[in-house]
Amino acid sequence: MIKARVTVTLKNGVLDPQGKAIEHALGGLGFGGVGQVRQGKVFDIELDSTDKAQAEIDLKAMCDKLLANTVIENYSVSFV
């Protein structure tokens, strides 16, 4: 079995009000020197396969079709 991790993040230039709120909250907790915070999503996906090359192709298709909205989000695929 292959275990993969898909990370979805907002593209540069896309406003992230949630990240901004977290940034302010971290400052409020007394953490100094916190720069920009951007919120994203992580998906841990198990695949019933041993073919990593094919898995990467499949995972990218999953990102394009569902896991990411490529209008506003980037994604990356890694294996764990």
Binding site: V14, L15, P17, Q18, A21, N69, V71, I72
Partner: peptide, 16 residues
Amino acid sequence: VEAGLLPGALMRNASL
């Protein structure tokens, strides 16, 4: 928008 029948995206309100 998510179905691709209209362009763009709808995001969390700026006010949260």
